[in-house]
Design a binder for these strands. Structure first.
Lengths: 171, 171
DNA sequence: TATTGTTATACTCTATAACTATA
DNA sequence: TATAGTTATAGAGTATAACAATA
């Protein structure tokens, strides 16, 4: 959070091809978070490669939202996930092609769809959520329980500060 | 970290267009981190829009690395930032076009470049680092000092677990 | 044979505008 | 006029393969 460490030249650190000073970067919390998300996304890609939810986390999170809140519209989901309407069209197209999600016309509000899981979607989502939980727990396994609780509380506080939107409950 | 909250129907929560249950997502630390990085990237775009480092953080981080470690090669930087060689070519092309960075041929190892700042680059990098620090501090301002220290320590622990590469020191 | 930088290609994600149909 | 969904387009990020120059 402050003063960069000196380059430690001359010490016993002269083994490898000259160590790099990355402290200007690691002093920034935002840099830390970005690098970690890169790694966590790689872990996601590995865990979900053999599933129809490969290639970006948007398909999984959309499916989980529909499972927990049947009847959501595409725009509703976009607001939660910070995705615009064109992005949601593509995701729902994919999930529909995979026969996991169904677009039902809203009876009164005929502009929007009510998104619901198909029977296959309901059956699959349990498996997907188990994969998600395993990959998430595995990734954060290097942390102690106390650190995980702290991290969760801190991230939640930041989320509420920047996303206090219409969202809702949970977390 | 566990048990989803019930939908709390019937309580005083029936005001807005029916609250959404996002707890399946917020139970995942990885989801929290991804959403926060989305927000932090938006903050970056705003802060650096009027500079030649707009459009992605790679240009700033590359510049800061060269400033702290003159003579780095493109591949060196790519290893630190988890970017492949084609990505680094594009970034250095941009920084060179902006007259911030210079490709110098390495005298002995004539395959690689020694990347150094131009006079203009050295003058600008101080300003850019000040902008970076301000935007970073502003973004994490909702946290107490203790929380920031905790977050930094936790993120560092995870980084070391997943990126124990050849990196170096600092942080 | 391996490595640095380069080019080309492709696929994803993101952002914007414009169109339709509904309200 | 405003909103939900759609389409088209362009930009940035990422991943791959292949190439030239060098080691």
């Amino acid at each position: 959070m402050s003063a960069h460490q000196p380059k430690a030249r001359g010490s016993r650190a002269e083994a490898k091809p000259a160590l790099l000073d990355i402290s200007p970067l690691t002093d920034l919390l935002s840099f830390h978070m970005r690098m970690l998300v890169l790694a966590v996304n790689r872990a996601y890609d590995e865990a979900f490669a053999p599933t129809p939810l490969a290639g970006g986390t948007g398909k999984l999170t959309t499916l989980m939202l529909i499972a927990a809140n049947p009847g959501m519209s595409q725009s509703d989901i976009g607001r939660v996930l910070s995705k615009d309407r064109p992005a949601m069209v593509r995701i729902i197209d994919h999930l529909e092609a995979e026969k996991l999600v169904l677009r039902k016309r809203h009876p009164e509000e005929r502009r929007r769809y009510e998104l619901v899981l198909t029977a296959q979607g309901r059956a699959s989502v349990k498996r997907f959520m188990a994969i998600a939980q395993t990959y998430d727990e595995t990734f954060f396994a290097p942390l102690s329980d106390r650190e995980k609780t702290n991290l969760s509380r801190i991230l939640r506080k930041l989320r509420l500060a920047y996303q206090s939107d219409t969202l809702g409950m949970g977390g």
